[in-house]
Amino acid sequence: MSSAQATKNCITLKGSAQIIVEYLKYGIHSILFQRGIYPAENFDSTQQYGLTILMSKDPKITTFLQNVLSQTEEWLSKNMINKISMVITNAHSKEVLECWDFKMQAENGDNQAADPSQRTSSKDQTRIQNEIRDVMRQISATVSYLPLLDCICTFDVMIHTLDNTELPAKWDETGAIVIQNAQAVQLRSFSTGLHKVETVVNYKMST
């Protein structure tokens, strides 16, 4: 977080990417806990954004998220990502049950420099954190209306990148996901001044 604050409370593109990746980490862990995808005893509570957030202890999940999010940070700092989707699927039938979309939009920041890496934002850090906290609260409140996941579920993180991005090793191209009979709910959005992140949850309507 300290590196995100360069000088005089300026947020650079890299710093913005770091903030968003942190949000994604906590958000995905929180969703994993709230939606009951893994048993509750595998989670530890930590304090972040002034909230208690439960983080998975499973080394497989943590390493997976570490790998995905480091790549995401790299791409985000080059503005190459349109959207990040966390997809919850039935482990047996592979049916997509829920999709959490984190839509990324590049913003100009204070100075509309031609080179995006030179852009900075002077948005207050605490304000950003407050905005993220509101979104996190909403995520934990979604449990009240989202349908119960009564089967063994698993999750995947898909990144919607630009068409010309080169894929590193162990990364693979996959198709877009489709939810049958979907319903979408838009949550709050937050902005670092350089990126605007909208959170949307798509879920399968229980018939």
Partner: peptide, 13 residues
């Protein structure tokens, strides 16, 4: 918009 969907090969799913 023109984009491709990518994911890590060894994912939990």
């Amino acid at each position: 918009p023109i984009s491709k969907v990518v994911h890590l090969v060894d994912n939990p799913a």
